[in-house]
Design a protein around this nucleic acid. Structure first.
Length: 443
RNA sequence: GGCCCUAUCAUCUAAUUGGUUAGGAUACAGCCCUCUCAAGGCUGGUGCACGGGUUCGAUCCCCGUUAGGGCUACCA
């Protein structure tokens, strides 16, 4: 039988990073086994169920590159895929449980008779886990307002949708005996369960969007990674490495390779702490390796948002700018800081760099010498600019860096940046000479 | 409180199904390279939570302790 796995998010207005990781593991397992990945929206809470909240989830999935075989927008043979549209199915199942004597009315609600015995959860990651249910209370499955609870709909949907493997966070392990009992009462074969470790904050606490510490809370939402300018393939790669590894020393992995290697027994049993540093390192690796075209496509929106470029900015110029900073940038959100002087003529000078340059011995005359050299340049390329600068240096018995640093500050306002010569080439002769002269007049 | 899961460098992890100089990566430090910053190269330090067993021998098996996490709702 073909594998069928699912991810069943609740539209709360955000996609939790832990949820995204669970979804990824399900998706990987589907790919690995050649099965189906099903997306099901658990929108039983009418109060916060909005189309916008659902869209947040769907957009997150698309951004991460997690495609689903059945679910919202595409449908499938086991629909509908919104729980809010499946109430008849739940009603029927509750009646069936009542008829069979497994459920009963209680103060307006419906309770499920928990079998009073030991229940073993055969978990594919953790192993067999035994729970003593001899003293467990019966479970409310339909509230007095008529709405079915999570445990019930979750089990019924998994049954109806013929889910074969439930891969979910370990926080659900303690609920699983209830689900197993429900399957049994419904006369259905339960799926196999695999409870995966949870992602914790860097300090070991639970990752929550409600964390009082904003620097922790923000990491809980997928939107943060989108806004901060992470590449989806980098985040996906990092998420794979939280609780799973290819068992060799590789860390940067193609998704096809992960799909091939990924399996449930290879999942680690303990929780993992989230590390923004490592994610950033991986992201830098992906940004460096990505094609110039993709870097442009992903980077331009960040420049637009910062008002550095508009639709009338020549595309070729943006391309050139992005090409020379690509290897430097760790996050797309860093792009404005790295490139603003390419697009704005009113430079913002780094105070320390400015002061250092203005007080450097003979800085003014050096800049004058360089300006003269550059004014006379017949061609304006990184090579000719480098040659010209080195010529000025050797003529005056000074080092290359004695000219590079003041020049960099003069034209960019900063002490750090991409290769100076490429920077000058892209800026163009007019801009460079204007800025050099303007800076000289500051002395 | 009760029940459940977990425990290798600061962090993510590998190997050892009892015998290893316990490996890699991130981060950190130093050096090299260099027009700055990165990248890259080299080097370095840091780890088997603790206590009992079992055994010729435990990081690895068992028990306990401790610590972290989860569940314990007419939340999901």
């Amino acid at each position: 039988m073909s594998t069928r796995v699912r991810f069943a998010p609740s539209p709360t207005g955000m996609l939790h990073i832990g949820g995204a990781r669970s979804a990824l593991f399900n998706w990987l397992y589907a790919k690995h086994t050649g099965g189906k990945f099903i997306l099901r929206i658990e929108d039983t809470d009418a109060a916060r169920n909005t189309q916008e909240a659902v869209d947040v989830i769907l957009r997150g999935f698309k951004w991460l590159g997690l495609d689903w075989d059945e679910g919202p927008e595409i449908g499938g043979p086991c629909g509908p895929y919104y729980q809010s549209q499946r109430t008849d199915i739940y009603k029927k199942a509750v009646q069936q449980l009542k008829d069979a004597g497994h459920a009963y009315d209680f103060e307006g609600a419906v309770k499920f008779k928990i079998p009073k015995r030991k229940i073993v959860v055969p978990d594919l990651v953790i192993g067999d886990v035994e729970f003593d249910y001899t003293v467990e209370n019966d479970l409310v499955i339909v509230r007095s307002d008529g709405s079915p609870v999570f445990h019930l709909v979750n089990v019924i949907d998994d049954m109806e949708m013929k889910i074969t493997h439930v891969i979910r966070g370990e926080e659900h392990l303690s609920n699983t005996p209830k689900h197993l009992a429900l399957f049994e009462a419904l006369g259905a074969e339960p799926p196999r369960y695999a409870h995966i470790p949870i992602i914790l904050n860097s300090d070991g606490s639970k990752m929550s969007k409600r964390d009082e510490r904003p620097e922790f809370a923000r990491w809980a939402s997928l939107q943060t990674y989108i806004d901060d300018g992470y590449a989806p393939e980098a985040l996906r790669n990092y998420l794979c490495l939280l609780g799973w590894s290819p068992k060799d020393d590789r860390e940067i992995l193609e998704m096809e390779e992960v799909c091939r290697l990924f399996d449930l027994p290879g999942i680690v049993r303990h929780n993992a702490r989230f590390s923004a540093e490592k994610l950033q390192w991986i992201n830098g690796r992906y940004l460096m390796a990505m094609s110039k075209e993709r870097f442009y496509e992903m980077g331009k929106p960040f420049l637009m948002k910062a008002d550095l470029v508009s639709d009338s900015t020549p595309e070729a110029y943006i391309h050139e700018v992005l090409a020379i900073v690509q290897e430097k940038v760790k996050l797309f959100s860093d792009l404005p800081a790295w490139t603003s002087y390419f697009f704005k003529d009113d430079l913002v000078f780094d105070p320390e760099a400015l002061n250092k340059t203005l007080t450097a011995p003979n800085a003014k005359s050096r800049l004058e010498e360089l300006t003269a050299k550059y004014e006379a340049l017949p061609v304006w390329t990184a090579e000719s600019l480098e040659a010209g600068l080195k010529e000025a240096a050797s003529e005056n018995g000074l080092k290359t860096k004695d000219y590079v640093h003041p020049c960099r500050v003069s034209v960019s306002g900063k002490s750090v940046g991409p290769s100076l010569y490429h920077m000058l080439q892209v800026l163009g002769k007019d801009r460079v000479l204007t800025r050099l002269k303007a800076f000289i007049s500051r002395f």
